[in-house]
Design a protein around this nucleic acid. Sequence first.
DNA 1: ACCTGCGGGACACCCCGTTTGT
DNA 2: ACAAACGGGGTGTCCCGCAGGT
Lengths: 203, 203, 203, 203
Amino acid sequence: MQERSEETRGRILQAAMRLFADAGYDATGVAEICERAGLSKGAFYHHFPSKQAVFLELLDQWLASLDKDFIAAVPVGGVAVPEAFLDMARRAREVFTIADGRLSIFLEFWAQARKDPEIWTRTVAPFRRYRDLFAGVIRRGIDEGSFRAVDADLAAGALVSLAVGVILQGVVDPNGAKWDEVLVSSVELLFDGMRAGDRGERW
Amino acid sequence: MQERSEETRGRILQAAMRLFADAGYDATGVAEICERAGLSKGAFYHHFPSKQAVFLELLDQWLASLDKDFIAAVPVGGVAVPEAFLDMARRAREVFTIADGRLSIFLEFWAQARKDPEIWTRTVAPFRRYRDLFAGVIRRGIDEGSFRAVDADLAAGALVSLAVGVILQGVVDPNGAKWDEVLVSSVELLFDGMRAGDRGERW
Amino acid sequence: MQERSEETRGRILQAAMRLFADAGYDATGVAEICERAGLSKGAFYHHFPSKQAVFLELLDQWLASLDKDFIAAVPVGGVAVPEAFLDMARRAREVFTIADGRLSIFLEFWAQARKDPEIWTRTVAPFRRYRDLFAGVIRRGIDEGSFRAVDADLAAGALVSLAVGVILQGVVDPNGAKWDEVLVSSVELLFDGMRAGDRGERW
Amino acid sequence: MQERSEETRGRILQAAMRLFADAGYDATGVAEICERAGLSKGAFYHHFPSKQAVFLELLDQWLASLDKDFIAAVPVGGVAVPEAFLDMARRAREVFTIADGRLSIFLEFWAQARKDPEIWTRTVAPFRRYRDLFAGVIRRGIDEGSFRAVDADLAAGALVSLAVGVILQGVVDPNGAKWDEVLVSSVELLFDGMRAGDRGERW
DNA sequence: ACCTGCGGGACACCCCGTTTGT
DNA sequence: ACAAACGGGGTGTCCCGCAGGT
């Protein structure tokens, strides 16, 4: 009996994910979600207190999967920093091709974040965390002599921005470029610019 | 009489811009726009056929100003390519600090672009154009010996993605970092990576 | 100059007539009338105080033309009553074929009559007048021995009802029957039933 | 639970019927219907997809009741045709006096029929059917020797037109005449005109 | 516990018939 | 003669709570 409940919840989430990604949060009605999930509105509100709750659940799931894929994959030691980073970029590349349409909802998260404080906190925090994480690793790369003495925070900001920009464009204009290649080669260029031994002088 | 009309149109556009930026397109009602602009719904629909028309006008205005600021500023010749690029990055920096809240609507444009084909075309086209423009300039930089032989298209994609990512984060999390500095230093790093004379070997 | 004004009024009336007939009074907007007449709303309200005023003018015109065609044609004397009536029916037949789409507005008049007292008075009065007129003529027919002693008022009511019913069906279902023939033959049958010499006994 | 739903539907239909009859379809707002029915717009749109759906349901109900009263009452055999017809006319008379204000909606049906194809089909079809039905019976009357050899189709058209005209005037000008008597006596006159034994010569 | 239908208001966008200034 | 402005509804749809049944 409880399993049935869990399965219904899943159906709601899946339907909502799809519709939010396709049409946007505001444009998606509870009725549509219910229709797609194959149940009544009463059932919907039995499992979730509101439409926003579904959105939040989706957001949490997404963030958790992001953490699992990346945080866990961050180079903890042993391996040289730049190589580890490039490895991450390549991993991200796979995420891209796999993510399919599910990445669309990404934009929706950011759009909603500006209106709802709760969503905002949960959306922004991870990105700050990634920046800090990257900054730490870059600092380690500097220490180990792989990078020259760049500003680690700004460089980390550049990395995250790059990722965000690629994702966004990948969502809006998927056929506009081979975004996975753009991502990998961008990171390569960035690291070339940070390599130790470069004169570091400006143009 | 005609001036009055123009002024009313302006008031509507300004009010809509503000509200779309603050609360989003969907969440903003025509009634709110009218109230903020200080006129009636009848007047609104006298000047614009629909809410979307206002949005489109706003989009066009924004794109036009973007073109004026950047396309016109693209290095046409004489000056060395990298320097010209960095100059553009610095100019963009000013746009940032000036843009104020008006940049928020940027996200709204992208979010709406996925739903409305007309908005999509007008939103995506310029970014493709920027990419092509940048690619051309980069190729010129390679020819003149400033850059090594990188893939110009991918590098241009990296530049645009960087800008998009910075803007987006600047909108959602304005106090999360000094985004204008991130932008400038990112471009610097990217160019360091493309400089001629580097061995170009991978890590 | 005054001629121009008169011509504009005419254009408005004509456009309104057409639109009222096609789409109905309520569904026709002042803007549509103006567009079809090729002028602005300001001009419209310069010539008519309201949309209803146009409708009333149209109604009056129609009633006047009706009077001209029928009241004037009523058998004043000399000729035998039944023949005169049949002559009128034949004349009505021509009106039918000529009236074209302009008859559609007839239904609109009746529909509006139930809501607006002023329209009601002007719409109903003529029909009562026709009934009285017919009743008088029928009485004359009885006096002269053409008809047997039927109830003149009821017979007149039958005549008018017949006409109304035929017109209405002609408007709604023009291809459903040859309504002009139905009208003529109906009147013939009715008069056969009123002819003197019949036994007048019931079935 | 199901009964409650049915009762609510009924309340909506009844309120709509009354308001459509009083003020017309276009002039009646959904809000008014809800207010009169004592429920909210949410409830309204739960039971009906649109205002027009209510109208169609009303139309169907009316047509069904019409069929029940008349089609079923058509003389199937045994009884002489003219008598059967007069019996029908008398039955119609009762319908009149009972129908009360509910007949007003009749006009609304016809007025709307010109605009909406679906309404048109459903409105016109029955009247054509009645005409065919009457024509068949009249033909039977001719065969059995009750009527002389009139054109059955035209005569049937006359009958229906008479009914339509009487109803319409009864709706618009209820106090203008004793419409029930007009109807009965009109049919009598018409049958007098069709009686066998008359010389059939024209005037 | 799980699910359903019914109902509630609020409000969206659009457009209406009209008046005001020029 | 007209463009500009006015409010007040028009329908339809939204997200959401209950009461009741399985």
